[in-house]
Design a protein around this nucleic acid. Structure first.
Lengths: 351, 351
DNA sequence: TTGTAAGCGTTATCAG
DNA sequence: CTGATAACGCTTACAA
């Protein structure tokens, strides 16, 4: 007998399928499929009947079944070091928004700057047969590299741009950022300029920035001075650094730094507060430059001079590049911005 | 002849399937399936052969096909007002981390406090047949309510807790937060206490907070004074509010506020800076309480007294509740915390 | 423009 | 413990 709605099948979710809609609308199942994918190719009379049936049944197309049949999913995976930090949130936001505007969904996971966690996130994503994958930075372990290159889908690396690499990259050059900060301070007349690393070892982008800084120093015949704090909490690390560099240089012969570039604004903020508490005049006795332009940076006293990475743009452009690769972008929406973006130095009071 | 690897099929992604693995390992396909889902039920000899074949072929199980067949996906959708604000990021982070620890993936979308966008996000998620759905707040439009209740999957509402509602909720009471702030100031001796709303109309949780504030005021025979700023940018709105309430009360008869509760720390920070610039003594002439405990709040001068919502806990507990509902949580991992969480008042310098 | 048949890659079912 | 078979809900390929 198998009357719709009266028989109970053994498997399945129990929800309306394309066949239920077809039966109710008295059309073939494939016509219902076309109604969703190529509405223009379904006659108006049938469209109306289908629409009514869809509404009556509360039918929602099963995208998993669709993806399986067509081997095209509209899911895009993104691995980001962390979601809750001040840095990457705007990238996730703009990436997700741009995707959903085009009917794609974001699958998200975080790596905490760990190559191992990145690998397992990528591995987990791959099972969902995503249409594309986005990772952060250009440093991955071999297993991840292999997974990414073997996946046969577009892969975009964000937040880092190295002209020597082949994958699509959307980001900026951290080396250039380090240079930018150093040149800025040099032009202001500072000579004893130090750089404070992130105590978080996995943050290799900060190492690139210190490389850029060191290159500029040597270019001017100056000695680079890179300090690696031991404290884990960023505010504490910043405090430790400014004490070592500007308040009480430890080793004999060391001269106090006139200016310090910090790997990020958290470190810089910790240093700023500690410096003030110790009576250090900023920028008079020691200028400070951060990186990140975190929300609090303009609110500090003195407000923090820092370099602002284009987080929102990265997310948006990465999404557009992927959509282009997937052929999902109408020609009118094409975006002509470059993938190599610039960071803006925000001049405030601290340097 | 159809030899594996030599023939080109007409459909499919071209990647290794469970059948390829089965053929290479000389076992039935279903045994390969069991190897992944119930490893204990596959004999050791075969397990070894399967493992080798999996490795050789670089086989990754297609989770879409698996979900379709079993009608169980390991995807969980979350709709959050915004990703990049300081508020929700830690919830997303802890939610995602807890899920992935248990083999589930996070599908994310943002609503920007718009009921319409929330609806379309939920609708889009539903097509992926998620195992569960998380939404923010208890305010949804009728269509969303219908989608959620008709989905037949666990739904958790976060960031809000109203004992009168049936769905699982993990959050705190915004009314209680408003009361908490008002009582704190009252206990400190303040009487002319004002409340500044969020200029963002969709943020109904802020309205709950002002309700709580108003209740406490009336309880003490005091007149509530709720100010709704017109400026859109939060810092500007805060500035506008403190000018109206504490610097130059506009209407005749108005007395200056001795203390102001702000709907969030952004508003409070804007007010703090504007007040200082105008020579207002804080908290001497006007005390300020915020909400959110944003990262910059301890760094302001004076540092901001505020109420800290349990963002990280919300995400973690919501994930655990879902996993419990799905039967995916070993009894040992059961979590006994309540779903109604408390907010902590962080006493700093501004009040 | 519409329909039929045959998959997509996996798991539920049931029989060994 | 293992396997054959038939779904899962949809789309491709091809025919009408």
């Amino acid at each position: 007998m198998n009357e719709p709605g009266s028989t109970r099948k053994r498997r399945g979710s129990g929800r309306a399928t394309i066949h239920d809609v077809a039966r109710l609308a008295e059309v073939g199942s494939i016509t219902v499929s076309r109604y969703f994918t190529e509405p223009g190719r379904v006659a108006a009379t049938r469209s109306a009947r289908i629409a009514a049936a869809v509404k009556q049944l509360g039918y929602v197309p099963n995208l998993m079944a669709g993806s399986l049949a067509s081997s095209h999913s509209r899911i895009i995976g993104m691995v980001i070091p962390n979601i809750s930090g001040p840095i990457f949130a705007s990238t996730i936001q703009s990436f997700s928004d741009t995707l959903s505007r085009h009917g794609y969904q974001l699958l998200l996971a975080s790596s905490y700057f760990s190559a191992k966690q990145e690998e397992s996130a990528v591995r987990a994503f791959l099972g969902w047969k995503p249409a594309a994958l986005v990772v952060t930075g250009r440093f991955h372990n071999r297993a991840t590299e292999k997974l990414l290159s073997g996946a046969g889908i577009p892969v975009v690396e964000t937040w880092d741009y190295d002209p020597r690499r082949k994958p699509i990259q959307v980001g900026y050059s951290n080396t250039a950022v380090g240079e930018q900060a150093a040149r800025y301070l040099y032009a202001k007349g500072y000579r004893r300029i130090a750089f404070v690393q992130n105590s978080l070892a996995g943050d290799l982008s900060a190492v690139d920035r210190s490389d850029g800084y060191a290159a500029v120093m040597r270019e001017h015949g100056l000695q680079p001075n890179i300090h690696v704090p031991t404290a884990e909490a960023p505010f504490d690390a910043g405090k430790e650094a400014i004490e070592a560099l500007a308040l009480k240089p430890a080793r004999r012969g060391d001269q106090r730094a006139e200016a310090i570039i910090f790997a990020n604004d958290n470190l810089a903020a910790g240093a700023l507060l500690a410096g003030q508490r110790a009576g250090l005049e900023i920028p008079g006795q020691c200028a400070i430059v951060g990186f990140g332009d975190y929300p609090f940076s303009p609110l500090l006293l003195p407000s923090l001079t820092t370099i602002r990475p284009p987080g929102r743009e990265i997310g948006e452009i990465a999404a557009l590049r992927i959509l282009e690769q997937l052929g999902a972008l109408p020609a009118s929406d094409r975006d002509t911005r470059l993938n190599l973006l610039a960071c803006e130095l925000i001049e405030r009071e601290s340097a």
